[in-house]
């Protein structure tokens, strides 16, 4: 088993008694070297989770370990780009990259940063940049740091399709070349599908799905047939039209192919079904659980 990039144990975060829990009782593991999609609706706790992993927040309860240590200890090995891409508005692009070198003297890779920041107007102040340009600069800072773990909060939201495609390509190349672990959050799954081999679905402050995308998809099936009991399978969501039943189930053993018409769900179908059915139990594949498999079993 490879090392863990992130390991959360009973992790909880509240921003004050009145505002409830942004994240509660989260336990999961992200193995190192994966490109992970962190998905979930707005307000699900994705940003909170990333901030905790980046060491910007202290958990209200439980713990999170990053690269085998405390997030604060791992500071030099993590890069984090937050949703609003905060950069010093009065610095120029050149100044900002210079600051990256000054603040990361041990690891700074100028070439990696310049590759991303190249198309930007070098003497422009950050405050004059467009949202997409700021994203590019923030990603340049993150890549220039040569991290082992990149935490990217909605990194692609401001980018046009062409820039998105290009930057995604750079990130994937980085991941492939240096075995960098990347966690990217989004509420639009299609943005990440195809690039990510790992999935974390956060909803209502809880991790509901975690594991290799393929395994998670393979653990589920869309079944169609006559209305009847689906036991022993766990029904995530079902719909009846007349006598016809269509259900997305989590397989417990093989599905009888004589009784049901079985197809594999798309990742998007699977996520939407889980978001619509908050009562569906969480599923973490063995690689996503800290100890021995606790919840369900992957196929």
């Amino acid at each position: 088993m490879t090392g863990s990039a992130i390991e959360a144990n009973g992790l909880g975060m509240t921003y004050g008694r009145k505002r409830g829990w942004a994240l509660r009782d989260c336990s999961f593991r992200l193995p190192a070297g994966r490109v992970c999609a962190l998905v979930g609706p707005n307000g699900a706790g994705k940003s909170t989770l990333l901030s905790l992993a980046a060491g910007l927040l202290r958990p209200s309860e439980g713990s999170v370990r990053v690269l085998g240590t405390d997030p604060g200890e791992a500071r030099t090995r993590i890069a984090y780009v937050s949703q609003d891409k905060p950069l010093y508005p009065q610095l120029t692009v050149t100044d900002t990259l210079w600051a990256g070198r000054e603040l990361n003297p041990a690891t700074w890779d100028r070439e990696a940063a310049d590759r991303i920041a190249g198309p930007l107007p070098q003497d422009a102040k950050v405050r004059t940049l467009s949202g997409g340009q700021r994203t590019r600069l923030a990603l340049a800072l993150a890549l220039g740091k040569r991290p082992e773990l990149m935490l990217l909060d909605e990194p692609m939201a401001d980018l046009d399709p062409l820039a998105r495609h290009q930057l995604m390509g750079v990130l994937m190349a980085e991941a492939a070349e240096h075995a960098t672990t990347i966690v990217m959050s989004s509420h639009i799954l299609t943005e990440l599908e195809g690039s990510c081999d790992y999935l974390l679905l956060v909803d209502g402050g809880q991790v509901r799905l975690g594991g290799e995308s393929d395994d998670i998809v393979a653990a589920h099936a869309v079944v169609t047939g006559q209305v009847r009991d689906l036991a022993p399978h766990t029904v995530v969501e079902s719909r009846t039209t007349g006598r016809q039943l269509t259900a997305l189930v989590r397989k417990e053993g093989p599905v009888d192919p004589a009784a049901w018409d079985v197809t594999e769900p798309s990742l998007e179908e699977l996520l939407l079904a889980h978001l619509r059915s908050p009562q569906a139990p969480p599923l973490l594949t063995p690689s996503a659980t800290g100890g021995p498999s606790r919840t369900g079993a992957a196929a």
Partner: peptide, 14 residues
């Protein structure tokens, strides 16, 4: 207020 501390603290600076 502007959140730029998050940029500073996630460089190699405590």
């Amino acid at each position: 207020e502007s959140g730029t501390y998050r940029m500073a603290w996630t460089q190699s600076v405590t």
